[in-house]
Structure formats: structure tokens, C-alpha cells
């Protein structure tokens, strides 16, 4: 019994497993940075959508409807690739000579010097930005709705105090908007958390990739078959992990809601 326990304690703390545990940081970073960027893009989009200038308004509504109209995976894959190619094209206009372009056999980049190698950090940043862009479109809708839910009397009062349009927007409108936006933003946050499972599609060695590697049938020439296909057990762990994260986020948003709703909402929904 104790021998078994010692074996399992050793098994789940071997080097590969420790790397797996460490890779949870990528998921957390992507979720936090993606969430923060989604709020930023959402605020920008909602302000554009609220603008009195037709051009801005069109940009805001096109952004939110187009990005919400295509699958998140598509945009999640497309944005980092497109950004990488854009940078490589920009670099290629500076560093490529006619000879090096002629010497290039692959269809991309234009010449070998313009190649931009992306490591995990770069991909993680790009993944966070594209999470922010995708879910910023959802947040745009949420925040746009919340801004319209702010009682008109509050804005009129602010104007009566002699505030300029910008002051009304920043000091009253956006500050009072959060209470109405929080339930919707909580939904967007849940979507972001679930979308972090896609990081492995961008060649980041994240929790999903490691679960696959660790669970795959393990055969050593000296020992024979160490274990057969254990992948579903590792995926079950991830399944439970994500449910736990969802549960924690729900509790956190409830507490936040109770705090921000003080004095504004007479009754906080449970």
C-alpha cells in the first residue's frame, strides 16, 4: 500500500508531469491578458458604436458583427498568421535584395532574411491579442447595451453641472455603465476561459498538448509497455480543471457584482 503510494507520488511528480503543471501558466496568462484586452477592445468598440460620426459608428458595428459572425477558432488562427506575415512583408521591403528574393524557393517569406521566428512567448502574446480581438467584439455588444442602460437622468445631471461631452463620458457614463455590463462581461470571461484550451493550435506547449503527450501509450525498450493509452484520464483532469475555474469565476463575479451594485441596484440577483 505505502509502496503503491510512493510509486504514484513519484509518478505524478516526474519531470514530464512537472512540465505539465508548469504549462498551466500559459493558460492563465492567455486568459488574463486576453480578458483585459477584450475589455479594452470592447470599450473602444462600444465608444465607436456610440459615436455621432457615421464613419466611426460603422467601424464599431462592422467589427462587432463580423467577428461575432465567424467562428472564434477561425479568427484565433487567422490573426497570428496574418500578423506574422504582415511583419515579415514589412521587414522584407527593407532587408531583401533582388538576389535574395531570386534565391528564395519557398512561397513565403519573400526572402530568407525576412523570416520571423516566433517562440512560445511571441505566440502567447499573439494568441492573447487575438482572444482579445475576438471576445472584444462580444464585449462591444455587452458594453454598448450597458451604456444605453445608464439612466438618462444621470447624464442630464452631469450636463447640468456644466461637464463637457468628454467629461460626461468618462466621469459619469463609463463609470456607471459597469454595473449593467458585469453580467454580460462575466459570460464573455467564461467564453475566454474556454477558448484558452485552443492554445495548442498555435504551437504553444500548453496543458492540452502535454496531456496528450503524457497519456499516450508509453513504451520503453528496456521495460516494455509502461502504460497503455491513458489519455482520457489526463483529459478528465483538464475537464475538471476547467469546471473548477468556471465555478471560481462565478463566485468571483458574484462578489464583484455585490460590491459594485451597492447603492445602484436595489436587489442583486443571486
Amino acid at each position: 500500500m505505502s509502496e503503491d503510494l510512493a510509486f504514484w507520488a513519484g509518478y505524478i511528480t516526474n519531470g514530464k508531469h512537472l512540465t505539465w503543471y508548469a504549462s498551466f501558466q500559459f493558460t492563465v496568462y492567455a486568459a488574463l491578458l486576453g480578458g483585459a484586452l477584450a475589455v479594452v477592445f470592447g470599450l473602444t468598440g462600444a465608444t465607436l458604436k456610440n459615436s455621432r460620426f457615421v464613419g466611426f459608428r460603422l467601424i464599431g458595428s462592422t467589427y462587432s458583427s463580423i467577428v461575432r459572425g465567424v467562428p472564434d477558432v477561425l479568427f484565433f488562427l487567422f490573426f497570428p498568421l496574418a500578423f506574422e506575415q504582415g511583419v515579415e512583408w514589412l521587414v522584407s521591403t527593407q532587408v531583401c535584395s533582388v538576389e535574395s528574393i531570386a534565391a528564395q524557393t519557398a512561397p513565403w517569406p519573400p526572402c530568407r532574411e525576412a523570416n520571423w521566428f516566433l517562440g512560445t512567448t511571441e505566440y502567447l502574446l499573439l494568441a492573447s491579442v487575438s482572444l482579445g480581438l475576438v471576445y472584444g467584439a462580444f464585449a462591444t455588444n455587452v458594453i454598448h447595451g450597458a451604456m444605453r442602460a445608464v439612466p438618462a437622468g444621470q447624464l442630464e445631471a452631469a450636463r447640468a453641472y456644466g461637464m463637457s461631452a468628454a467629461q460626461v463620458l468618462w466621469r459619469v457614463h463609463i463609470r456607471q455603465m459597469w454595473v449593467y455590463a458585469l453580467p454580460g462581461l462575466s459570460n464573455v470571461w467564461m467564453l475566454i476561459v474556454k477558448a484558452t484550451s485552443l492554445l495548442s493550435l498555435l504551437q504553444i506547449a500548453d496543458i492540452v498538448l502535454w496531456a496528450d503527450r503524457l497519456g499516450a501509450p508509453n513504451f520503453l525498450p528496456t521495460v516494455g509497455l509502461v502504460h497503455d493509452d491513458w489519455r482520457w484520464r489526463y483529459y478528465l483532469v483538464l475537464f475538471v480543471f476547467y469546471i473548477l475555474v468556471t465555478w471560481l469565476s462565478e463566485r468571483a463575479f458574484e462578489a464583484l457584482m455585490r460590491r459594485t451594485g451597492r447603492g445602484i441596484l436595489s436587489e442583486v440577483p443571486a
Binding site: 474556454k194 485552443l198 489519455r231 482520457w232 483538464l238 475537464f239 469546471i243
Partner: peptide, 18 residues
Amino acid sequence: RGSPLFIQFFMFYSLALS
């Protein structure tokens, strides 16, 4: 509703495989 569809795919497919 609380877990990603991506993980659900992997989980059920690997379960079926095993």
C-alpha cells in the same frame, strides 16, 4: 457548460479509443 468543447472532444474520443 463549464468546460471547453475542445477538451470534451479529446476526452470522449480518447475514451472511445481506450
